[in-house]
Write a protein that binds this DNA or RNA. Structure first.
Length: 524
DNA sequence: TCGGCCGGTCA
DNA sequence: CGTGACCGGCCGA
């Protein structure tokens, strides 16, 4: 009988491992000091890449999807089921089933990957990424719990004050967090003129409150501040404190099989939506800190999705803007509003920015008019002007939708597919939603692919250079590295180069990098 | 207890 | 009537 240590060491000597959903197991081994590098196939990840629209990746389902075999049903095995007799459904039986299933899936999955033309994407990007993510989860991110608690205490105080004020103004106590009870106060007792409706009644969301504010500003104003503070308190204050593990760090999970565009997602907790826009919210980022003696490097792509559009649409104006410009939104505004770049006002720039990003999401005149608070006719003019300035963008959008409808799926530059059956749905609204998804997935998907390549390369090159620095966190187009100060220059160069060179587009990939003592500090 | 809904945070 | 996510709270089943 081998000692436990020896068993773990034996694992590292296995040259080739095939697993289903390997990340949790890799992380389990990392917690015991074993870094498994031999993962050669992950059947769950393969199934995801083959069809990211599926959300069931348990091995039994993948097995029946890609082979003629099925897992034994609880009632008893049928002829073409994996059959281990009538033994109890215990762990060893289950493990044997898994092993057989993985083996049975090897060829079918590899064939399917080859047929879709995504073997490179799988073996060069998705598969190595599994271990990178396992390491990120294992290491986690350190949290200054005192700072976090103090932020939360402040929020509790503010929420309490505002609760008292609002109950006083309403004339009675009620649950401020209940849209139902809030509706009673606003629209029944106070007879405010309501805005838009939801499925269950009149809306009380921030945009609506803004519109009806003037009818009762002394209530609406503190209500909106209450909403802001209560959101920060419950989700980030209480939520993050709860998530801090015994080692003083937060170990979120980074899910590789959720987002239909190829992006990663984060949960338990979600570290992808830590506040940054409002002053009250972004203080949470001061509580995220490097391990003792280290610094944070934060590097993020500059407008990567717009650069993806420039490349995919092959639009001369957009490519020129990204190749030569220091301020693409200003250049876009100049072209859209037919003025000299130097004469672009901040309002024009903001509108141009909104148009650019809106396009990436398939936005139309109505949507633009809502966001810019202008008339639909004016929004139409702006969009028309945009498409005159950047004609290939419209052509790209049209062709992308047409091809996706014909094939039933979209394909990114790197070959990642996404089925969009809604494109042929008889329901107009559903079909239109499918069109927006089709327009967006090539863009968001390419950005995701590029970022994943960068992540794998960064991790690879950090080990290759024998550096202590390590990837801690990822937020779609941003990576956070924990680095000892003496590695700063080397890491800075390495990370920037890896990100810029992750793909070769017809526009350069620009990366901003900053160093600091907290996540909040490391902002360029 | 669970799931749908509302509202809100991020890229 | 802009894409992609996750989460806390409410509320009815």
């Amino acid at each position: 009988m081998l000692e436990k240590r020896e068993v773990l060491d034996q694992i590292t000597k296995i040259p080739s491992l095939h697993m289903h959903h390997a990340k949790p197991l890799l992380r389990w081994f990392l917690a015991r000091g074993v870094d498994i590098r031999a993962l050669k196939l992950d059947t769950a990840i393969a199934a995801y890449l083959l069809d990211p629209s599926d959300n069931r990746f348990v091995i039994g389902e993948v097995l029946s999807r890609y082979t003629n075999w099925v897992f034994p049903a609880s009632q008893g095995a049928q002829s073409d089921q994996l059959d281990f007799g009538n033994e109890a459904n215990d762990v060893s039986r289950r493990s044997a089933c898994d092993a057989l299933a993985i083996n049975a899936l090897l060829n079918p999955l590899n064939d399917a990957l080859a047929k879709q033309g995504v073997k490179t994407l799988y073996y060069e990007v998705e598969l190595p990424l599994v271990r990178v993510l396992a390491k990120m989860e294992h290491v986690g991110i350190a949290v200054n719990k005192k700072a976090l608690t103090s932020i939360n205490d402040h929020l509790i105080h503010e929420v309490q004050k505002l609760t008292g004020v609002l109950h006083g103004l309403a004339g009675r106590e009620f649950n401020l967090n209940s849209p139902t009870q809030l509706r009673e106060i606003l629209f029944e007792e106070r007879k405010l003129q309501p805005g838009k409706k939801t499925k269950t009644g009149f809306s009380t969301d921030a945009a609506t409150l803004e519109k009806i504010r003037d009818q009762w500003p002394e209530f609406i104003d503190p209500l909106m501040r209450y909403r802001e503070f209560e959101k920060l308190r419950s989700t980030y204050g209480e939520g993050l404190i709860q998530s801090v593990a015994k080692d003083g760090r937060i170990h979120a999970t980074f899910n590789q099989m959720v987002a239909r565009t190829g992006r990663l997602s984060s949960d338990q907790p979600n570290l992808h939506n830590i506040p940054v826009r409002s002053d009250e919210g972004k203080v949470f980022r001061t509580a995220f800190v490097p391990s003792d003696g280290n610094m944070f490097m934060v590097a993020d792509y500059n407008q990567i999705e717009l650069r993806c559009i420039a490349h995919l649409a092959n639009d001369p104006g957009l490519i020129e803007a990204f190749t030569n410009s220091v301020d693409v939104h200003a250049v876009t505004a100049a072209r859209v509003f037919s003025v000299e770049t130097k004469d672009v006002t901040s309002a024009m720039r903001a509108q141009a920015k909104m148009v650019s990003y809106g396009l990436a999401y398939g936005m139309e005149a109505f949507g633009l008019s809502q966001r810019l608070a202008i008339g639909v006719d004016e929004a139409t003019k702006i969009l028309d002007a945009y498409f005159i300035a950047f004609p290939n963008v419209r052509r790209y959008m049209d062709e992308t939708v047409a091809e996706a409808r014909k094939r039933g799926y979209t394909v990114t530059l790197f070959g990642r597919r996404r089925p969009i059956p809604e494109l042929n749905n008889p329901n107009f609204r559903i079909r239109q939603a499918g069109e927006r998804q089709a327009m967006n997935s090539g863009i968001q998907g390419l950005a995701a692919d590029i970022f994943k390549v960068a992540l794998v390369h960064i991790d690879d090159q950090l080990s290759e250079a024998n550096l202590e620095s390590r990837v801690i966190l990822q937020v779609h187009d941003e990576v956070i590295i924990e680095a000892p100060p003496h590695e700063r220059e080397q890491v800075n160069d390495l990370v920037l180069a890896a990100m810029k060179n992750a793909a070769s587009l017809s526009v350069p990939l620009e990366v901003n990098a900053a160093w600091g003592e907290t996540w909040a500090d490391a902002k360029a």
